[in-house]
Measured scan of single mutants.
Amino acid sequence: MTTFKLIINGKTLKGEITIEAVDAAEAEKIFKQYANDNGIDGEWTYDDATKTFTVTE
């Protein structure tokens, strides 16, 4: 398992979430479901060097 981080730069929600996932594809699926569940819709980026996803509304 690898640790992945999501940085949320939303209009109403900001913060960071860290999860353990098998790979970046699994982490992205989990993070996008979390964002969808919380009404966050924005532009996604991923930095493989730091294993960090960012979503900006």
Rank of each mutant, 00 (worst) to 15 (best):
T45Y: 03
K32F: 09
T52R: 09
T45W: 07
E43M: 11
A49R: 02
I30L: 08
D37F: 15
V22R: 04
K11T: 11
N9G: 08
E57Y: 07
A35P: 00
F31V: 14
G42N: 04
N38P: 01
Y46D: 00
I40W: 11
T45S: 12
I30F: 15
Y46Q: 03
T18A: 14
A21Y: 02
G42T: 02
T56L: 14
K11I: 04
I40Y: 14
D37I: 13
G39V: 10
I7S: 04
D48L: 06
T3R: 05
K51C: 04
M1A: 07
M1P: 15
K5T: 07
N36F: 15
I40F: 09
T2Q: 11
T45H: 06
A27Q: 00
E57N: 14
F31C: 01
I17T: 10
K11S: 07
D48A: 13
I17S: 09
A49P: 13
D48Y: 04
Y46E: 01
T54E: 12
L13C: 02
A21S: 07
N38S: 08
W44R: 00
K32E: 15
I8F: 15
D37M: 15
F53H: 06
A24D: 08
K5D: 10
G42M: 04
K32C: 03
L13I: 04
K14R: 04
I17G: 04
T52N: 10
L6K: 00
N38Q: 13
V55S: 04
D47Y: 08
W44I: 15
L13M: 13
D41K: 05
A25Q: 11
A27V: 05
I30D: 05
I19Y: 14
D41W: 06
A35I: 03
I30K: 10
D48G: 10
M1C: 05
D48V: 06
I30C: 02
F4A: 01
A49L: 14
A27D: 00
D47E: 02
G42D: 02
E20V: 07
T2V: 15
F31T: 05
T52E: 03
D23S: 06
T12M: 02
K51Q: 08
T54H: 15
I17Q: 09
F53Q: 00
N38T: 07
I30V: 13
K11Y: 11
Y34A: 04
E57Q: 15
A27M: 01
A21E: 02
N9L: 15
